[in-house]
Every structure is written in structure tokens, then in C-alpha cells.
Write a protein that binds this DNA or RNA. Structure first.
Length: 204
DNA sequence: AACCAGGAGACAT
DNA sequence: ATGTCTCATGGT
């Protein structure tokens, strides 16, 4: 399994090249994008982020202080705007009180992960995206593309000895965490390449 | 014109 | 613990 996961990574890298993720100009913008892209096309997220920029709302402080209704209106294109406006406020509050300690190395990855998962609106995938792409911590992100690709990959199916139906998020993550060297750049590029590959397959 | 897109939480069982 | 509903816009 260990060699296979690296081999599949090499194949993706060979095909698509480095992706240099996540799209976004700052750790905070990346975190915002991680929430806004929940079950949502990235194109819509770009429009929503542009909306935040237009309204001068792309900062934790601005998001914390702006009325919920106005925040919701500015991110409308991303969908679920009522849910996500509240989630951004929750995340901004968390960011305000925690991001510095994490950047200063005062929390382990597991501690930071637990802390993030305590935020209403941040589930396991969003948490891992923020840990990996905002804080440069070595955690593996599992998303729908990952599950779709690997659950139809013959070489993977041959190696994995679990019931795919019953595998939940932490099980999927465990497979990659336990069978890959904990290398930040590898985890960063691997997830990005899986998504790029998934989008290509959907558009062919 | 139905269907989907880089999920998560509330709620019932 | 596990299954089902809901949330919502914009592009095919």
C-alpha cells in the first residue's frame, strides 16, 4: 500500500505537474475559501470572495463586527449563504483567539485539529484544509474526489482490506496518514492533484 | 431542466 | 452509532 500510494501520486504529478495550492493570497483567505467551498463549485466561491473584498469584509475583524445579514448578502454566490455567513463568524472568532498560538507552534497538529473541530460549521474536511493550507501542518485532506477516485482504483481496491461502504472520514484519512511519509509538500500536492484529476474526469 | 459542485449539523431512530 | 433532511447559487 505504501508504495502504491506514492506511485499513484507520481502518476498524477507526471500528468498534471505541481499545483501550488491553495488558491488564496493569505492564510485567512484560504480558511474562508475552505468554508465557502463546502459542497460548492469553486467558481461560485471566487465570486463570493470577490464580494467580500468589494465590501471590505475580508478580514476576521470585519467579519466579526459586520451584521450577519450584510455578511450573508455579500457571499450569496457561494450558496448556503445564511449558513455560511454564521460559519464565517464562528471561524473568525476562533481565528482571532487561536491563529497566533498555532503559528507560534504552541499547539500540536492534533491539538489544533481538535480545536478547529469545535467550531460549529467546521467539519473534518474543512479542518484539514485549514490546517494544511493555512497553517502548513501535515494532515491529509479527504474529500469526495478522493473517495470517488480511490474507490474505483483497482490497485487500491486490491490493497485495502476494509469495507469501503463502512469507511468514514477518519478511516479514509488514516489510510493515507499511515501509508505515506509525513511530508508537508507531498500532502499538499497530493490532495490538490486528486481534486484536479477529479475535475478533469467530470468534464470529459 | 434536472443535476451537481473541493460538507456539515440537526434531528430521529 | 447510524441514516435522513436541509441548506442555495450558478453553470451544464
Amino acid at each position: 500500500m505504501k508504495k502504491l500510494l506514492l506511485k499513484i501520486y507520481d502518476e498524477f504529478y507526471e500528468t498534471y505537474g505541481p499545483q501550488h495550492w491553495w488558491p488564496g493570497d493569505s492564510p485567512w483567505e484560504i480558511a474562508v475559501g475552505a468554508v465557502l467551498t463546502q459542497n460548492t463549485n469553486w467558481k461560485n466561491v471566487e465570486k463570493a470572495i470577490a464580494g467580500l473584498v468589494d465590501e471590505a469584509l475580508l478580514s476576521p475583524e470585519a467579519i466579526m463586527s459586520v451584521p450577519l445579514e450584510k455578511l450573508a448578502t455579500s457571499i450569496k454566490p457561494s450558496g448556503y449563504f445564511r449558513l455560511k455567513s454564521q460559519r464565517l463568524k464562528n471561524l473568525a472568532q476562533w481565528w482571532w483567539s487561536n491563529h497566533k498560538d498555532i503559528f507560534d507552534g504552541k499547539l500540536t497538529m492534533d491539538e489544533a485539529r481538535e480545536s478547529l473541530l469545535g467550531v460549529n460549521g467546521v467539519g473534518p474536511e474543512t479542518a484539514d484544509c485549514i490546517l494544511l493550507y493555512s497553517f502548513n501542518m501535515t494532515t491529509f485532506v479527504i474529500d469526495t474526489y478522493t473517495k470517488k477516485f480511490f474507490s474505483t482504483e483497482p490497485r487500491f481496491l486490491k490493497k485495502v482490506n476494509k469495507n469501503l461502504e463502512k469507511m468514514k472520514y477518519e478511516d479514509w484519512r488514516g489510510i493515507f496518514m499511515n501509508n505515506l511519509p509525513h511530508d508537508f509538500n507531498l500532502f499538499n500536492e497530493y490532495h490538490a492533484l486528486i481534486v484536479i484529476n477529479g475535475k478533469k474526469l467530470a468534464n470529459c
